[in-house]
């Protein structure tokens, strides 16, 4: 039984375990695995394990300038000329399905069952946060880069779903304030604004990745484009994006209304205060006049 997060035993010597992080900017010295095309401006870089820096299988050193970013994806690449080696695939699958160090996959939540995709002599076994690629050596880099790209977008989608799911209880608690605001709403205005900003940020993140996730099939197809398409189909991105859009709309509507109600309340209160000030001053004037008239009335 291999140790957690180590290259499993029984694999070819050329098998390599990559801990991958996605960085918008390169600090210099990182081992760049692939660059994303515009407008993403992201780089998939190999990061060292904080505990065992430099001891990654395969022996290639990872230059680390400063503290290494946390790995977002664990990728196991296995060069194999025989693409239907059952034992090899079973071993790869076992590795994908085993829980990550710490007991939970990098995406959080319970471990999910793995899925196997076979394309042009390349076998890809994947689960959230863990992917194993078995392919001929000459195709391995192309397959790895395609997997890294599509895994990033799927990870983003999953992350948006996770954050929205975590925010549901707060949303339900905030719904009454979308109908009417009072002094307590004003006290919570900052929290509501932060939640609204978070929702808008999630919407922006979704809008940013949607063009890739909903891109039509490429013709003529390449191995890389087919991997992306197959991955998207298997992960049901169409339906998930549709659901996310609807959910984000609910969030957006509730927090927009909260903001509107709070703003209306502040405006109304200012106007009411001014009216009351005028009324109080008029009452004071009437009172003084009454007391001025009182001696005459009394006699």
């Amino acid at each position: 039984m291999p140790e957690l997060d180590e290259t499993p035993g029984g694999l070819p010597a050329a098998a390599e375990l990559l801990r991958v992080a996605y960085q918008p900017q390169l600090a210099g010295g990182e081992a760049v695995l692939c660059d994303f095309s515009a407008p993403f401006r992201l780089h998939a870089v190999r990061v060292a394990d904080a505990a065992r820096s430099g001891s990654v299988a395969g022996g290639s050193s990872v230059a680390a300038a400063g503290p290494a970013p946390p790995a977002e994806l664990m990728l196991l690449t296995i060069p194999a000329e025989v693409h239907d080696d059952v034992e090899l695939l079973a071993e790869a699958r076992r590795w994908v399905e085993q829980p990550a160090a710490g007991g939970a996959p990098p995406t959080g939540g319970p471990p999910e069952p793995s899925q196997m995709t076979s394309l042009q002599a390349a076998q890809i076994c994947w689960a959230p946060g863990r992917i194993a690629v078995v392919a001929p050596a000459e195709r391995l880099t192309a397959v790895r880069n395609a997997v890294l790209e599509v895994a990033y977008f799927e990870h983003e989608l999953r992350e948006i779903e996770r954050q929205l799911g975590a925010d549901w209880p707060a949303l339900e608690a905030d719904i009454p304030q979308a109908f009417a605001a009072d002094e307590r709403t004003l006290a919570r205005r900052r929290t509501l604004r932060e939640r609204f900003e978070r929702v808008m940020l999630l919407r922006a993140r979704l809008a940013r990745i949607t063009p890739f996730l909903l891109a039509p099939h490429v013709y003529p197809p390449t191995l890389a484009s087919q991997i992306g398409e197959r991955f998207r189909e298997r992960t049901r991105v169409h339906q998930r994006i549709e659901c996310l859009r609807e959910q984000l709309e609910v969030f957006e509507r509730v927090y927009e209304m909260c903001g509107q109600r709070a703003s209306d309340f502040v405006l109304t209160r200012s106007s009411n205060t001014l009216e009351w000030v005028i009324i109080i001053l008029l009452l004071a004037q009437i009172l003084l006049s009454l007391f001025d008239m009182l001696p005459a009335v009394a006699t």
């Binding site: 209160r269 205060t273 009351w276 000030v277 109080i280």
Partner: peptide, 10 residues
């Protein structure tokens, strides 16, 4: 029911 400014003014 009124803003605090009003009781202060009164």
């Amino acid at each position: 029911h009124l803003p605090l400014l009003i009781p202060i003014l009164i």
